[in-house]
Design a protein around this nucleic acid. Structure first.
Length: 487
RNA sequence: GGUCCUGUGGCCGAGCGGCUAGGCAGAGCUCUGCAAAAGCUUCUACAGCGGUUCGAAUCCGCUCGGGACCUCCA
């Protein structure tokens, strides 16, 4: 197996990937907080990790992929004093909090399925692991790194930092963090300005609360990931991922909790995906520039010229490396749509390719290039560049400008299967279902009538048919082998 | 304000010391009843100014843009 290199936020370099216990790989990714519809930025992160998951599977690893659903403990507004996001939404909608959770969890899964992302091996919820979270909090108190204050349990960051590197993920100086932290209202119970809550005392009106050794309350946000990753992947596992916006606070605190709990930093490789931007600004709910995936599919959004299929969007995202920001625009999406269609049309052409001539090593070189791209920190843009080399080869062979042996053709099939379908998770958008079968039959009928007109040199009729089809967004393509069409 | 990242051709985006990805758009040619598709060719860029080096888009410094985090977000 070729060496796989992964950019590790901990070292800020690309490192060779070595699993703790091969062929098994444990991967934890911070999932969504299910208090509203997922937006496209969320989807980008999960699609990036889907590629990583798929590629590890393709390489033969047995991956346990854990991605949590945050259904409690994630607060609104300033740290540790705001209202629980889900509770708030439940009150506004006059629903049970778990109705909110259910609605948006199902919606999230539906959207991710449309994007053809594989479901994780385990999708645990915070509310399903209250006991585990309490146990971790207790142990951290026992270890002297957390304290209870008026029903809330805080992590003692400054004490922890005396013997541990609290800022390993961000490379910041603790003193600077201390200087720059704002004074917040209602946090008088804290000893240190950087301390964060493991367990939070519930106000009487709070909807989601549980008994605990410190009174009725609910878990802090960061501790759920410590609890669930430890439970399902062990105290130390291979990969931990999430969006870059989680790096400084959520992941930093998560590492601190794990070390305070069991003396071990949880993951060897920390991966962070970059943000999706719109007109150069981060796509975020609070800025009001976020699209819902469904708006993107239908084109029903003021910033969108038209709709795009889920696979076009997926391909569009794969054209940018996961650690770069991806700026959203109609023009870029339209370009991706054409490119994606070309890639898929070429696959169709491949099905009818006839072998001839002698073999060259050009196809096996191409396969090697594809692996090299993916082994270099999952570089999908470079992979796609190589795949367009395959497109060129297939089309040249189809035009009889190049010859391919059966072996070459088989290898091209495998390259498509492995990289386009298995690893990138692309698939044909349509060509399934009754409606498409019917359309196919109608098209064959229409085109045979047009062929008849053409062979009678009745170009008025043949052009009329073609022009009308073009108006319906159906493109007619004549060639020596016959007439093809595409939408 | 502090910390960090970033600035590539008309547009999107890789590359990150020498071998000048890729896609979209544009131009020309081949094919074709015409067109489309496809193929080939073409357009050859690295914010600015200095420095290091035989050699810099790639390293260093400064200047000017853009962004992220520090405060809920993937």
């Amino acid at each position: 197996m070729e060496k796989l290199f992964i950019y590790n936020t901990l070292s800020r370099t690309k490192e060779e990937f070595k699993a703790i216990n091969p062929p098994f790989v444990g991967m934890y990714v911070c999932g969504p907080t299910v208090y509203s519809d997922v937006h496209l930025g969320n989807c980008r992160t999960f699609m990036s990790f889907d590629i990583i998951y798929r590629y590890l599977l393709h390489l033969g690893y047995k991956v346990r992929y854990v991605r949590n659903i945050t259904d409690a403990g994630h607060l609104e507004g300033d740290a540790d004093v705001g209202e629980d996001k889900i509770s708030k939404k439940a009150k506004l909608a006059q629903l049970e909090p778990m109705e909110i959770v259910q609605k948006y969890t199902v919606g999230f899964r539906d959207i991710m399925a449309l994007f053809n992302t594989l479901p994780p091996s385990i999708e645990p919820t915070a509310t399903g692991h209250i006991i585990e979270q309490q146990e971790i909090a207790k142990k951290i108190i026992d270890n002297g790194l957390a304290y209870e204050s008026n029903g809330t349990v805080y992590f003692d960051v400054e004490k922890f930092a005396k013997t541990n590197n609290y800022t390993a993920l961000t490379n910041r100086k603790l003193e600077e963090l201390l200087e720059n932290t704002r004074d917040l209202e209602g946090q008088d119970d804290k000893k240190g300005r950087l301390d964060f809550a493991l367990w939070i005392k519930a106000k009487p009106e709070h909807l989601m609360k549980w008994p605990s050794p410190w009174g009725v309350g609910f878990p802090g946000w960061h501790i759920e990931c410590s609890a669930m990753s430890t439970k399902y992947l062990g105290e130390q596992f291979d990969i931990h991922g999430g969006g870059m916006d989680l790096q400084a606070t959520h992941h930093t605190n998560e590492i601190a909790q794990n070390i305070a709990y069991c003396g071990k930093s949880p993951a060897n490789y920390w991966l962070h995906t970059n943000m999706l931007t719109v007109n150069g600004q981060k796509m975020s709910k609070s800025l009001g520039n976020s699209f819902l995936p469904i708006e993107l599919f239908t084109g029903q959004h003021p910033l969108l010229n038209k709709g795009f299929t889920p696979m076009t969007v997926r391909f569009f995202m794969m054209q940018t490396h996961y650690r770069s920001t991806l700026d959203f625009s109609n023009e870029a999406l339209e370009a991706s749509e054409k490119a994606y269609n070309r890639l898929m049309d070429s696959y169709k052409t491949l099905q009818s390719l006839k072998p001839s001539g002698t073999s060259t090593d050009i196809v096996s070189k191409l396969q090697k290039d594809c692996y090299e791209a993916m082994n270099d920190d999952f570089n999908t843009p470079v992979l796609i560049a190589h795949l367009f080399e395959a497109v060129r080869i297939i089309n040249s062979a189809n035009d009889k400008k190049m010859s391919l042996t059966q072996k070459d053709i088989d290898l091209l099939h495998r390259i498509y299967q492995h990289f386009v379908f298995d690893v990138m998770g692309l698939k044909k958008d349509e060509e399934t279902g009754k409606a498409y079968k019917a359309l196919e039959g109608v098209m064959n009928l229409v085109l045979s009538l047009r062929d008849k007109a053409k062979s009678n040199k009745d170009f008025t009729t043949s052009d009329e048919i073609r022009n009308n089809l073009t108006a319906l967004n159906i493109q007619v393509k004549d060639s020596k082998e016959g007439t093809a069409w595409s939408i």
